[in-house]
């Protein structure tokens, strides 16, 4: 098994870097080429969610991302926001997306979760084991 860790300040500009690293490690781990667009999107959504939570709560803690390739490609994205915020993710029903009552922020969160759930078959959102925060764990098969 090999592991790559990345930690970055919670700023939108760094999310692209996280996506690029995540896809590069996925390719090296043996994730099928046709899945890489989905890996890129899902990592981007998980990191965007973490950055937005840190900004919402005024946290300067680094967002952490860990990639490992033990029989599968596993990406964990960890934020340090209060758990109730992180676990408040819910998928929105399709007809709610264009409704007026939904704030732009809630809409973007709902769409982001729909994308995560739609593109990642093996997805878990759970509290971190130590300290405050939430972990988004995504797993993809590797072909080797």
């Amino acid at each position: 098994m090999s592991t790559v860790r990345l930690a970055f300040s919670p700023a939108p500009v760094h999310v692209r870097t996280a996506r690029l690293v995540g896809v590069a490690v996925a390719r090296r781990a043996g994730v099928a080429e046709e899945l890489l667009d989905e890996v890129r999107l899902a990592i981007g959504e998980a990191c965007t969610r973490a950055v937005e939570l840190h900004r919402q709560y005024g946290l300067s803690d680094l967002v952490q991302m860990e990639m490992s390739d033990d029989h599968s490609y596993t990406v964990r994205v960890i934020d340090r926001a209060p758990i109730e915020a992180g676990l408040g993710l819910t998928a929105l029903p399709p007809d709610a997306l264009a409704n007026e009552w939904l704030t732009d922020e809630a809409l973007t969160v709902g769409v982001g979760f729909a994308l995560l759930a739609g593109f990642v078959d093996d997805l878990q959102v759970r509290p971190v084991e130590v300290g405050i925060g939430t972990e988004v764990r995504m797993v993809w098969p590797v072909g080797k």
Binding site: T48, L97, A98, T108, V111, G112, A114
Partner: peptide, 9 residues
């Protein structure tokens, strides 16, 4: 991504 989709909506 979702932020881009949010802008379009």
């Amino acid at each position: 991504d979702s932020t881009g989709l949010g802008v379009l909506v």
